[in-house]
Amino acid sequence: MALGFQPSPARPTARPQSVWDYTRLADADLLALVAEDRDQVAFEEFFSRYSRSVYSMMVRQLGDAGWADDVVQEAFISVWRFARTYRPERGAVVGWLYTIARNAGYAAARRRQAQWLVDAPDRADPSPTPEDETADKLEAFQLHVCIERLPQNEREIIELAYLKGMSQSEIAAELRMPLGTVKTRNRAALLHLAEILEQEEQS
């Protein structure tokens, strides 16, 4: 990725005064603080928002948790280095970060002389094309990011119900709550997630 000599993204007008101010900043504002001020607290907040999604993506793609550790680290080093290259007008932070993480994965795979993505299949092959796979992976990454934005009690339900495939009865037992409460929370969490997804798409 080329660094270029472009102006960095605009800094937030009000400089954060405390740790919790950072938790309320938009992703783009955090990147602006990293780019302009080399602000480590902003970087830590950005890391806490996205590390789980990036790590999950890397483990899935590389198939090696230990290796993924290293590549996640490299991806966030790139975030620190290239925060200045983020352009809000070109799209949301999620897509920018996905590109950085994917490139870190490619670079790691090249170093090991391994293939991260499969070779382009024969066109008669009904399996997804590399472009389809990339789109699917980006969509999965975006969904993971949106799930991470849910409050803890809603995220927990979504993860257990859909990502871990537990039944609502099993969730009720796991969380020690009435089945009716699980159903209600599941519904509320889904609606909230849909709302977050819609906001992300609009951005």
């Binding site: 790590y55 999950s56 680290q73 993971h144 859909y162 990502l163």
Partner: peptide
């Protein structure tokens, strides 16, 4: 959305060892 979620791979917890070191390593490197 529910159907899409059912096909989504699980979100993995970041290993404890990765959390702070990766930030510090990024800054240092």
């Amino acid at each position: 959305l529910e159907r899409r979620l059912h096909t989504l791979p699980p979100l993995l917890d970041v290993p404890q060892s990765l959390v702070a070191p990766s930030v510090q390593a990024a800054v240092a490197e």
